[in-house]
C-alpha cells in the first residue's frame, strides 16, 4: 500500500445563487516514499484545490469534498480538525507558491523554525536553536545566525521560500506537498530550490507531490506525472513515456506549444486553439473537445472514462498515435 492513496477525490464549490462547480473531479493517484509525483496543468485546472483538499485546508463552508485520501492507512478526510492540525506540521509538510502568506509576519524566522522543532521533535529551546541554524544553512541561507532573528518581510522571495522549506524540513515530514514552490522565483533561484527538493527526496525518502504548470520542472523532477484538465486527470504516465510519446491530445498540444530552449532555429510552435473558457462540462462529454484537433462526434456525447490504454492511464476517445501529425494546422 502506498504512503498516500488519493481515490476519486472530488471538490464541489457551492456559491449562493450559482451552479455547483466541480473544481476537482474524481482525481486518483498514489505516492510512495522517495517518489515524486507531479500534478501539472494550466491555471484553474484544480491543482491547488487538490492539495488543499488533501491537507484539509479548504473552507468548511461552501466546499464539499468526497472520495478518500488514505495516508499511512488513515483516511485524512475523516480526521477532526485538531487531528489534522497535528498531522500537518509533523508528518505532512506543505510549501506554497507565496511563502509570505504561509509565514507569520510578526514572528522572527528563527522562532518559527524552533517552534516546529520544539513542538514536533521535542527539542529543548537551545538544541532547537542549533538545529534551526543547521537547517537554514542546509537550505542555503547565508549568515543563518542573523537571519534567524529577522522577520519574513526582511527576506527576499527566494530566501523566504528557503525558510519555508527549512520549516517543512524541521519536522521531517514523510509527505511534502509543494504547490508551485518556485513559480514566483527567478530561474537561477528556482534551480537552487529544485535541487534542494531533489536532495530531500533522495536523502530522507520523503514522498513529494509537486504541483506546477511548468512542464520543464516536471520533466526533471517527477517520477510519475498526472496531467490535469478541467479538474480531471486526463493522462497519467511515468515522465519518460509521457514526454517521449504524449498520447492525450491536450498533453500533446501543450508540448507542441511551448518553445524549447534546445530547439533548432526556426522551430514552429503549434498552439492549442481557444482557451479554457471554451470548455464544455465533463458531464456532457470531453471538456477539451472544443479545443481538440482529434475530436470525434462521440467526444461531445460521451464523457471519456479513465482507462488503461497504450500502457498508461488515459481519458480520451481518440488518443494521439505517435508518428502521425497532430491533426489540422491551427490558425493563429
Amino acid at each position: 500500500m502506498a504512503l498516500l492513496e488519493v481515490r476519486d477525490l472530488t471538490v464541489v464549490f457551492q456559491r449562493r445563487g450559482e451552479e455547483p462547480f466541480r473544481a476537482v473531479d474524481g482525481v486518483s493517484f498514489d505516492v510512495e516514499p522517495g517518489q515524486t509525483v507531479g500534478l501539472v496543468g494550466e491555471s484553474g485546472c484544480g491543482k491547488s484545490v487538490t492539495s488543499l483538499a488533501i491537507m484539509g485546508l479548504l473552507p468548511k463552508r461552501g466546499a464539499t469534498v468526497t472520495g478518500t485520501v488514505t495516508y499511512d492507512g488513515t483516511d485524512l478526510l475523516k480526521l477532526s480538525d485538531k487531528q489534522m492540525r497535528d498531522k500537518r506540521g509533523s508528518e505532512l509538510g506543505m510549501v506554497f507558491q507565496d511563502p509570505l502568506s504561509s509565514l507569520n509576519p510578526v514572528i522572527p524566522i528563527g522562532i518559527q523554525v524552533t517552534e516546529v522543532l520544539e513542538r514536533h521533535r521535542g527539542l529543548a529551546r537551545k538544541e532547537a536553536m542549533i538545529e534551526a541554524k543547521n537547517l537554514l544553512d542546509k537550505v542555503g541561507i547565508p549568515d543563518p545566525n542573523r537571519r534567524l532573528k529577522e522577520y519574513p518581510h526582511q527576506l527576499s522571495g527566494g530566501m523566504r521560500q528557503r525558510a519555508l522549506i527549512a520549516i517543512a524540513l524541521a519536522c521531517r515530514p514523510k509527505l511534502l506537498i509543494a504547490d508551485e514552490p518556485t513559480t514566483a522565483l527567478d530561474v537561477t533561484i528556482q534551480a537552487q530550490i529544485l535541487s534542494l527538493m531533489k536532495e530531500l527526496v533522495q536523502d530522507l525518502g520523503t514522498a513529494l507531490v509537486m504541483i506546477t504548470h511548468d512542464l520543464g520542472v516536471v520533466a526533471g523532477l517527477c517520477d510519475e506525472v498526472n496531467v490535469l484538465y478541467g479538474g480531471k486527470v486526463v493522462e497519467k504516465a511515468n515522465r519518460h513515456p509521457l514526454f517521449a510519446e504524449p498520447r492525450h491530445p491536450y498533453t500533446h498540444g501543450l508540448l507542441s506549444s511551448i518553445p524549447r530552449l534546445d530547439a533548432a532555429p526556426g522551430e514552429k510552435l503549434t498552439p492549442i486553439k481557444g482557451s479554457v473558457a471554451d470548455n464544455i462540462p465533463w458531464a456532457q462529454g470531453c471538456a477539451f473537445a472544443p479545443r481538440c484537433p482529434n475530436a470525434l462526434d462521440v467526444c461531445v456525447q460521451v464523457t471519456p472514462a479513465e482507462e488503461d490504454q497504450l500502457g498508461r492511464l488515459l481519458r480520451c476517445h481518440n488518443p494521439v498515435v505517435p508518428g502521425t501529425p497532430a491533426a489540422e494546422e491551427v490558425p493563429v
Binding site: G158, V187, G216, V217, A219, G220, H240, F243, A244
Partner: peptide, 22 residues
C-alpha cells in the same frame, strides 16, 4: 538553470547553481 520539457535532456544536464541572491 532553465528547465527543458524533456526528461532525457534533463537527466544529463549539468547545472551551474549560483549561490545566493541577486
Amino acid at each position: 538553470a532553465i528547465p527543458v520539457p524533456d526528461p532525457v535532456v534533463e537527466d544529463r544536464r549539468e547545472r551551474i547553481l549560483l549561490a545566493g541572491d541577486l
